[in-house]
Design a protein around this nucleic acid. Structure first.
Lengths: 242, 242
DNA sequence: AAAAAAATATGACGTGCGTCATGTTTTGAG
DNA sequence: CTCAAAACATGACGCACGTCATATTTTTTT
């Protein structure tokens, strides 16, 4: 269970081509002077599937941005049950809340879904940046607002919907936010097992497999973990809000 | 079902005694010059139980602060099922996320639990304040970070725990955050029916009544809606994380 | 104080989904 | 290519919890 925190690499960014980071909203809005300064404070970390970026309960030291790959944010119980709170995609910020302040701990564990690249900055530099740059602070507020809205929507779904509806909601969400076009329908870009899905919608692996089998029979989806395809988005949407 | 949006009153604050608002963290950190300016832009609104502060889907126009009383934030399904996302207490901010920006809509309905007093400011003034005052922006980030953490913890509980554990978690939360000391134990300061609790933990009223009856038999709680008392916090804590 | 409306209480019954068990297929490492 | 480990699949069974029905108590309104 416990793996050593095995950072594959850690690079300075100051020498990177400046355009490489243009897809990250937070960096885009900085003045070019301030941007250069921020790039000095950011470092790039690379992780692979078996690493852990940080663990639930660890002290918070950095502010993070996903540069490449997918990161999952999970909470677990002493008995070993797991709950996946959020999949973080390129451009997403995490630990951007200032609960990250003095002596705070991570409320969840951050784990790569494959090879990922993360940009990070220590708390001190991060808050200095926010103080210098109110637009950046507002950008972070916007981001947190969206995250909160998502988390609340998720709570509603967990509280009120059946397992098949929750799963349908999940697939709709992933397809619309991260899906890429495919001759068969919409392909999900990350490896996603039924177990992963189960953890995201609060059910067991078996139940998820049964429901996915039904969806497959009804031509709503096809494929498995390595190549999951949404074939009838409309039908899934209808089921999600039935 | 549909009540007229019946604001009992709406007052300017500029003439209020300045100490009256000292319990609100966001206002406390402003410079006294900026504080005076902000007070010009804030107005006080009063509502009663049968009012609605805003409805899910309404356009977002204001930033809000709870001054007195309790506000519940709910989402509902077309079939009439309800899910209470959060109880807002004095000092809490709401609609502080900038998703509140252009043309956005409220993701939930805000409803008073009794007589409440709300301070509000229009979006424009609010964002101007944040731009002028990075410390205020950081305070909002902190607040949103806490809200997000809470929402994620709630999602975890909904996903993994049984109904009695969810209810125990809720009671522990309310008792520790809002409870007031009482000869019998800890009294909850707001009127709270079993129906309200059911909506907060994602079960039915009947199930909540059954579980609360058991809690009462086992001397963990006593009283009903108007005077609910937590008598054995430790036991509830133990159950919540069993 | 009386009447109306909520809230609390309890039973009967059905079912969605968790649990355990066992087998097949797919994936990835060497 | 081979083999072990994951992932997928399917059945049997039980229980937690939703649903519906009906009664009593508490709270609110007039």
């Amino acid at each position: 269970m416990s793996k050593r925190p095995n950072k594959s690499s850690s690079n300075r960014l100051s020498s990177s081509p400046p355009d490489e980071l243009n897809h990250i909203p937070l960096l885009k809005i900085l003045s070019s002077a301030d941007r250069r300064r921020v790039l000095q404070d950011l470092t790039e970390q690379r992780y692979t599937k078996r690493d852990v970026i940080f663990r639930e309960g660890d002290p918070t030291e950095y502010f993070h941005i996903v540069k490449e790959g997918t990161v999952k944010c999970v909470k677990s119980t002493p008995e070993g049950k797991e709950c996946t709170l959020k999949m973080l995609m390129p451009g997403d910020l995490f630990c951007c809340d200032a609960a990250t302040f003095e002596g705070a701990c991570h409320p969840g564990t951050a784990q790569p879904m494959g090879d990922v690249s993360i940009l990070r900055m220590n708390k001190k530099s991060y808050f200095e940046m926010l103080r210098r740059n109110p637009e950046a602070a507002i950008e972070v507020i916007k981001h947190l607002g969206n995250r909160l809205k998502e988390a609340q929507e998720k709570a509603k779904v967990l509280a009120l919907d059946r397992a098949d509806q929750r799963l349908a909601s999940l697939l709709v969400d992933l397809a619309t936010k991260n899906g890429v076009k495919d001759p068969q329908g919409i392909k999900l870009p990350m490896r996603l097992t039924r177990q992963d899905m189960a953890n995201m919608v609060g059910t067991t692996t078996e139940t998820t497999i049964r429901i996915m089998s039904r969806f497959k029979r009804d031509r709503l989806v096809s494929g498995t973990a390595t190549r999951l395809i949404i074939r009838d988005l409309a039908a899934l949407k209808a089921l999600a809000s039935a």
